[in-house]
């Protein structure tokens, strides 16, 4: 699935572009989420093997020949954990934004210059 791989890289680049150009904090977090999704698509498509099925050995898969019938299970497992971590990190970032907005009443990153040099 070379198309999925290209789509993943495209999403990655779009997300990074969004994170670099946008001023709104929420939009930067949306850019981060797009990067996240792009990475997941890339990892899953790396594990793909043409013509093989999901790594679940049910009645549709020959038990003796399971190794030659399924796609790589490791990328799926990695992405499964990455999705949950991405969710938690996004929640943490959003709560930082909530606190910043309560303090300074602004969502623009131009109004936060404490770390700028």
């Amino acid at each position: 699935m070379i198309f999925a791989l290209i789509l993943g890289f495209l999403l990655l680049i779009i997300g990074i572009y969004g994170m670099l150009t946008q001023k709104n904090l929420i939009k930067i977090i949306i850019g981060f989420s797009i990067v996240d999704t792009g990475t997941h698509i890339i990892i899953v498509s790396i594990g793909y093997i043409r013509g093989k099925t999901a790594p679940i050995i049910d009645s549709g898969v020959d038990l003796k020949n399971a190794v030659n019938a399924v796609v790589d299970p490791i990328p799926s497992a990695l992405v499964l954990t990455a999705i949950v971590i991405g969710l938690a990190v996004t929640a943490l970032m959003l709560s930082f934004v909530i606190k910043l907005y309560q303090k300074n009443k602004s969502l623009s990153i131009d109004d936060y210059q404490e770390l700028k040099w």
Partner: peptide
């Protein structure tokens, strides 16, 4: 075109040693 060595061992082990249908 085929599973790598580690992945093959995971699939084999999941079927033969652990009795887990879902390899992931």
């Amino acid at each position: 075109q085929e599973l790598g060595e580690l992945s093959s061992q995971y699939v084999e082990g999941s079927v033969n040693d652990l009795n887990s249908q879902n390899v992931v």
